[in-house]
Computed example of a mutant assay.
Amino acid sequence: SARGAASMIAEAITTARSCGASGEIVVRADSAFYTKTVITTCWRRDVRFSVTTRIDAKIRTACDSISDDQWLDIKYPRAVFDEDQQRWISDAQIAETVYTAFAGTRHAVTARLIVRRIRRDDPTQIPGQEELVPTYRYHAVFTDSPFTLVQAESQHRGPAIIEQVNADLIAGPLAHLPSRRFSANDAWLTCAAIAHNLTRTAGHLAAGPQAGARPATIRTRIINVAARIAHRARTIHLHLPEHWPWQTAFDNLFTAVQATPG
């Protein structure tokens, strides 16, 4: 919620400057904070803003007005998870245009509208019969950032990596904290972070699709596995399911873990 956001931002800016921050300050906010008061507060405090916008009719018209030769291909150093399409995105295009927010009011602000677009995939499309007019999903950022297009877009997207980690933790061990005692919850948080890092490491060692999968997917595919333990000739045998689709991933992980350091 954007309620009280203006005073919170003003306090954060004052705190940052009192701690010695003397460089360019850019307030990065999600679409819930795309409001007149937030942007006005940034201007009054002499800081820059970078705010995600909702894709309404006016924003979509501005996005569609960008010509094809203005789009710049980018490749993410780390894939970004797309919640709508439920998949990892590693390639996209970015461009920018000039946009006036809150037009027709005394709070009208003209600044940069940085747009990232991702092509929509059609799972029913037959190879060799591509669509004549491709469709895209847009992600727009309203900003007065002084940085270049690539820098400004990357800086705004940076917190999304942390947000994804938080989402993964909340979907797992941090769905709730087990105790009313701070020390117990502190220990739980430490264990949750260790488990998250180990799960992500397991995904990378398993390779293939698991390298970019979310922790919940990794747990389902190669950790929470139904198996039968058998003892034979003083050795332990683990019988895994036949025709298991994630056998290769599990073998990769097992081989990597059992490898002798050297």
Score class of each variant (00 low, 15 high):
Glu96Pro: 14
Asp84His: 14
Ala92Asn: 07
Ser90Thr: 14
Asp84Pro: 02
Thr97Arg: 06
Leu72Arg: 15
Ile74Cys: 00
Asp91Arg: 14
Thr110Ser: 15
Ala79His: 04
Pro77Thr: 03
Ser65Glu: 08
Pro77Met: 03
Gly104Glu: 00
Arg106Ala: 12
Leu72Glu: 13
Ala101Arg: 02
Ala95Glu: 00
Phe81Asp: 05
Ala103Arg: 12
Arg106Asp: 15
Thr105Ile: 07
Pro77Phe: 01
Phe102His: 07
Ser65Asp: 12
Asp84Thr: 15
Tyr76Asp: 02
Tyr99Ser: 01
Phe102Ser: 07
Gly104Asp: 03
Ile66Tyr: 08
Gln86Val: 10
Asp73Arg: 09
Phe102Pro: 04
Asp91Gly: 00
Asp84Trp: 12
Leu72Asn: 08
Thr100Met: 06
Ala95Val: 03
Trp71Pro: 01
Gly104Leu: 04
Trp88Leu: 11
Asp73Trp: 05
Glu96Leu: 13
Ser65Ala: 15
Tyr76His: 12
Asp82Gly: 10
Phe81Val: 04
Ile89Lys: 01
Trp71Arg: 04
Arg106Asn: 13
Glu83Ala: 12
Asp91Gln: 12
Val98Tyr: 06
Ala92Tyr: 03
Val109Asp: 14
Arg78Ala: 07
Ile89Pro: 02
Leu72His: 13
Arg87Trp: 01
Val98Leu: 06
Pro77Leu: 04
Arg78Trp: 09
Gln85Asn: 10
Ser65Met: 08
Trp71Thr: 02
Asp68Tyr: 02
Asp68Thr: 10
Trp71Leu: 05
Lys75Met: 08
Thr100Phe: 00
Ile94Ala: 00
Ala108Gln: 09
Pro77Ala: 03
Asp69Glu: 14
Pro77Gln: 03
Val80Glu: 09
Arg78Asn: 10
Gly104Cys: 04
Ala108Lys: 08
Arg78His: 12
Val98Cys: 09
Asp68Met: 08
Thr105Met: 08
Gln93Thr: 11
Ile89Thr: 05
Ala101Met: 10
Gln93Arg: 14
Lys75Glu: 14
Phe102Arg: 06
Ser90Phe: 09
Ala95Pro: 01
Asp91Cys: 11
Ala103His: 06
Phe102Met: 07
Ala79Lys: 06
Arg87Cys: 12
Leu72Cys: 09
Trp71Tyr: 11
Arg87Ala: 10
Ala92His: 03
Ala95Cys: 08
Ile94Trp: 03
Asp91His: 14
Ile89Ser: 04
Ile74Leu: 03
Ile89Val: 13
Asp69Ile: 03
Asp82Gln: 14
Asp73Tyr: 00
Val98Ile: 13
Val98Met: 07
Asp84Gly: 08
Glu96Trp: 15
Asp84Lys: 15
Ile89Tyr: 01
Leu72Phe: 09
Ile89His: 01
Val80Gln: 14
Ala108Tyr: 06
Trp88Lys: 11
Thr100Pro: 02
